[in-house]
């Protein structure tokens, strides 16, 4: 009753300047987060959303060199670009499908190996020991190096003539030292190797951060109950890292699936078919053949595939997490 009376009284009371100032402050403080977000939103629009929508629009037009200057006059092609891209009886569709298969294999291999290495190292580095900080820093070096510099370095290492990799294999008696690592089917091995070398430190970093959040007491209790390291890993570490893994694996997959820099720097513009990742395939379909409509259609197909994979992955992993 008292509360109601106070409310009515306050409603009747004429607004004073100090009330107005307070309301303005409240409005301001409520608006502040949105105002602070505006620059980021504008950049997101300019850098991602508008180019993406432009790309989607371009995929419906016959945009080639004849309309590069008058791109607004490019003829409407409907779904023709998509038809060409998915027609596996045609040369372009067949090579896109092959590139897609190579990319899936590359992404699966890279993510699996990066995650496994990252997890292995994170578990090893979980316990405190002398030199742990130095090892952590050393492991993170590949991730800290600029990608172009790192991949150019690998190009030298993997070259047949003077590459260190061949030299090492020959010294160990594994090969005769004359293997082409940047040609033919071996180029797939090389690109996975370079990708894992670059990515596993990120997996390590993320998993180490995730493990910091697991209380030591749980491990101690498990040890008291007689659980060995493997048992502790399966029953404590893995389940408690589930939310971290969910994001980590998704991010690694999206990065590797879209990887452009590694094949571009490693093979220049002469990418062997066994390392023809889809992002570079799309680039070549657009920029080397000047067919931006077709290249955009391929990009949209890639976008749709990644969207479907992401949504399915999040649905499945979230449902599993809820059940657990």
């Amino acid at each position: 009753m008292t509360t109601a009376t106070t409310a009515i009284t306050s409603q009747r009371r004429p607004t004073t300047p100090s009330d107005a100032g307070g309301r303005r402050r409240r409005v301001h403080s409520r608006a502040l987060p949105y105002l602070l977000l505006i620059p980021a939103l504008i950049f997101e629009l300019v850098v991602h959303v508008i180019p993406m929508l432009t790309g989607v629009a371009m995929s419906f037009f016959g945009l080639n060199q004849f309309f590069l200057r008058r791109w607004l006059e490019a003829p409407f092609a409907g779904l023709d670009n998509y038809r060409i891209a998915i027609d596996i009886d045609g040369g372009i569709g067949r090579s896109l499908l092959q590139s897609f298969a190579v990319t899936v294999a590359f992404a699966v291999a890279s993510v699996t190996l990066s995650w496994t290495l990252g997890m292995f190292a994170a578990v090893l580095l979980q316990r405190s020991f002398r030199g742990r900080a130095a090892l952590r820093t050393l492991f993170l070096v590949p991730y800290a190096l600029p990608v172009y510099a790192a991949v150019i370095l690998w190009k030298f290492v993997l070259s047949r003539e003077a590459g260190m990799f061949n030299h090492l294999l020959a010294q160990l008696g594994i090969t005769d030292g004359n293997t082409f690592w940047l040609l033919g089917n071996n180029s797939f091995v090389s690109i996975v190797l370079v990708s894992v070398w670059r990515l596993w430190p990120f997996a390590l970093l993320t998993l180490m951060a995730g493990m910091q959040a697991i209380p030591d007491e749980i491990y101690e209790a498990a040890a008291v109950d007689g659980a060995g390291i493997w048992h502790q890993f399966r029953s404590i570490t893995l389940p408690m890292l589930q939310p971290v893994n969910q994001v980590l694996i998704l991010v690694l997959f999206l990065w590797t699936f879209n990887d452009f820099n590694t094949p571009y720097v490693l093979f220049s513009q002469s990418v062997p078919s066994s390392a023809d990742l889809i992002s570079i395939h799309v680039y070549q379909s657009s920029f080397l053949t000047w067919n931006f409509g077709l290249g955009s259609a391929m990009s949209v197909l890639l976008l749709l595939f990644l969207l479907v994979v992401t949504v399915l992955y999040l649905l499945v992993t979230s449902r599993r997490a809820r059940r657990a």
């Binding site: 016959g62 023709d80 060409i84 045609g90 040369g91 372009i92 053949t289 000047w290």
Partner: peptide
């Protein structure tokens, strides 16, 4: 050649 003609340029 098929790649070239398939583009429809």
């Amino acid at each position: 050649e098929q790649n070239m003609t398939g583009v429809g340029n």
